[in-house]
Design a binder for these strands. Structure first.
Lengths: 240, 240
DNA sequence: TTTATAAAACCTGTCCGACAGGTTGAATTG
DNA sequence: CAATTCAACCTGTCGGACAGGTTTTATAAA
């Protein structure tokens, strides 16, 4: 319940807020808190660290923006479930400030998702396999509504990451969703014909079936093909 | 210079700080700011958004903790260079709250770093290749000092990521450094003999040479072997 | 006119106090 | 013993204040 007093002197970057952030994360660790567990109140921390409530607030808010903790008015702060929020903001920041380009995003996604499809084929539950196949089929069903196709596509990829049973993969795949929402329509439009678009949907379905069949090699290769063709389409659209 | 007034109504989560965070990131995007560019002052934003300075401060501080912006006393906030700070905090949070285990970290690292070594072999400059080889050799040179070996090991992996010329890979590899610093000694100790430890160093040198030689297949396979053997060592140490 | 210096204006970091609500747990009451 | 009420807590937001650090402006010197 109390913050370890000896650890107050974090390797903080000069300002008190960093110190407070360190103290809070330290508190989580030393007390082995898990998602949902409550943190000390602002006033308590303020007293224990001998800093003003403002400093503690800024620390709490920072951790909340990163989704490491949850804040609720009236209630105490709680430890949060893992979430891709922070990484999403970071990736989008990188793209918007021209420090990351779309090809680099695609390369990372391809690398990660070849692995998630492999793992999904090995570890998916039947229910997960059905959901994945459902998303793939929804893309074809809603063919005329590009927005719905996109959302199903995103959900498809995320569900595969979930089925890999490694939350880090889910976070990374999730983190790219924001950027993907902006580039997806470009890829869709840049396909030369509806035939090509149907072909893309076909790959999704085959991939879902490979995962359902528990065939990791096939799943991985289909994912690679999917990304290669998407990259080609994007290239055709002039995204160097 | 001014915040787009129509965008003030972000999809904010009820609280004003989220709104402010959205307004600031929006400002960066609409004005196409890059690293080093200055942001409006707290007072300015406070007026434009019609919120108190406290709210703007918490928003700024949140973005600073995520390393999206840099704060300096007296100076205006500036757009920050991409950095793995936010992701590191997130990963460490996940590990410490038992939402992520070490095997999952290793799987992600293996996946990512097989790719970075492939790319490094293809894209590295001569200078980068020399630095990578230098880190590998330093591991053997400082064999007796485990701490130095570890730091060279970490630097080795990070430099390979840099040589891949994809900043996202650098970020991800960097994000795992904090966790790795905690698990590395376990792996080092769990090696059965000094011979095994030398063998591990040997792989690093061979990998560096593969990258120097521009052989992506060899580099990738050596990286895979490295991770497989590390995983084995960790397993032997009882890390399920 | 140009340059160097000094002053003013600006800016962030931190603290304090205040008040509106939302939440929680304990005392009171039926 | 259960339901209700109330007091204590807690967070969200605001405003003001002051110590430094920084930038710009104005002034003086060369």
């Amino acid at each position: 319940m109390s913050v370890a007093p000896a650890d107050e002197e974090q390797l903080a970057g000069g300002n008190l807020v960093s110190t407070a952030v360190g103290a809070i994360t330290q508190h989580i660790r030393t007390n082995e808190l898990g998602p949902g567990d409550r943190l000390p109140s602002e006033a308590t921390l303020s007293k224990e660290l001998s800093v003003s409530r403002s400093v503690v607030r800024e620390a709490f808010r920072s951790l909340a923006t990163m989704r490491l903790i949850d804040l609720n008015v009236g209630k105490r702060a709680t430890v949060a479930q893992l979430d891709h929020g922070a990484m999403s903001l970071m990736i989008e920041h990188g793209v918007h400030t021209a420090q990351i380009n779309i090809n680099q995003v695609y390369d990372v996604r391809r690398t990660i998702e070849m692995r998630t499809s492999t793992l999904a084929a090995l570890r998916r539950t039947d229910a997960e396999a059905r959901i994945i196949l459902g998303h793939a089929k929804a893309m074809e069903t809603n063919f005329a509504d590009a927005d719905k196709v996109m959302e199903s596509d995103l959900a498809f990829h995320l569900e595969i990451a979930r089925a890999s049973k490694n939350p880090i993969f889910s976070i990374i795949v999730g983190a790219f969703q924001g950027v993907s929402r902006q580039t997806w329509p470009i890829g869709w439009r840049s396909r030369a014909s509806d035939a090509e678009r149907h072909a893309m949907n076909r790959i999704h379905i085959e991939l879902a079936e490979a995962i359902l069949a528990g065939d990791p090699q096939a799943a991985s290769q289909l994912m690679a093909r999917h990304f290669d063709e998407s990259a080609k389409a994007l290239l055709a659209a002039g995204i160097a």
